[in-house]
Design a protein around this nucleic acid. Structure first.
Lengths: 138, 138
DNA sequence: CTGCATCCCGCTCGATACTG
DNA sequence: CAGTATCGAGCGGGATGCAG
């Protein structure tokens, strides 16, 4: 396990920021991805996450530990060393993330296009229709 | 379309409130589900959503309309009538919701169990290990 | 290195009241 | 019926500083 984590694996320019799916808290899903290849240390996790504050990362990790998604192992060394590793339950989230990625690949462009269309043409917003007497289409 | 919506289709007692997956904003996923059987009116949607405030529901619907997930059709009648209907893109979210449900069915109990265990036994929290010299078991 | 404490900001969500 | 307007509370989340 493991090559160092790519600092840009969560490039903020990537339109995934507009993705309508989220796993747990803001960072939970990304932490899962970071731990895919094996155990990681605290500071190691901070790199690809765009320099999350220690406080927030701790909160996230504690919550995930509490929910049985990962295990925390502290080694009584100097300097201190702590490793986080996914549990079976945590790895089970991969299927979900895969589904989210598949959806994004197939449909996110359409969503972004619709969004862009609304921003450029806020001129045709409220369409009113005379009440159709009957037999509505569809 | 459509029997009236079950007011308890999102029973807050259901543990899905602990589900680590979310579609868009807080209410987006539930709106999608409410529109599964066909077009619905504004007030009709408010019922199963636990009486969401009109303001919040409007925000949600506007955002979804902007993203091309649903269409808004206002009929110039008296009293006014507006119907919301999923687009193809909106319906594409069903696969995602299905994946989330499958995960919940298979793994949510384990998550809840882990959570309960931590609440009842906060006594074994910080396990420290003497640094293992080498060859850590995976 | 790890991670807790404190302060604070912004955003989401909600309650209430009012309009076409 | 279908919203809009205004106000406010709560909370996630970030900055900074400090401790084991």
């Amino acid at each position: 396990m493991a090559n160092p984590l790519d600092p840009e694996m969560f490039d903020p320019i990537c339109p995934s920021s507009a993705m309508p799916i989220q796993i747990g808290d803001k960072w939970t899903g990304m932490v899962v991805l970071c731990l895919e290849e094996g155990p990681r240390r605290f500071t190691e996790l901070r790199v690809p996450l765009g320099g999350v504050t220690p406080k927030v990362l701790t909160q996230t990790l504690r919550a995930m530990e509490r929910d049985g998604l990962l295990t925390r192992t502290a080694y009584d060394e100097n300097p201190p060393r702590v490793e986080y590793e996914l549990t079976e339950l945590g790895r089970s989230l991969f299927s979900l993330i895969a589904a989210a990625r598949a959806w994004s690949r197939d449909h996110l462009p359409a969503l972004l296009a619709a969004r862009a269309a609304h921003e450029s043409a806020p001129a045709a917003p409220r369409l009113l229709r005379r009440s159709p007497p009957s037999g509505p289409g569809r």
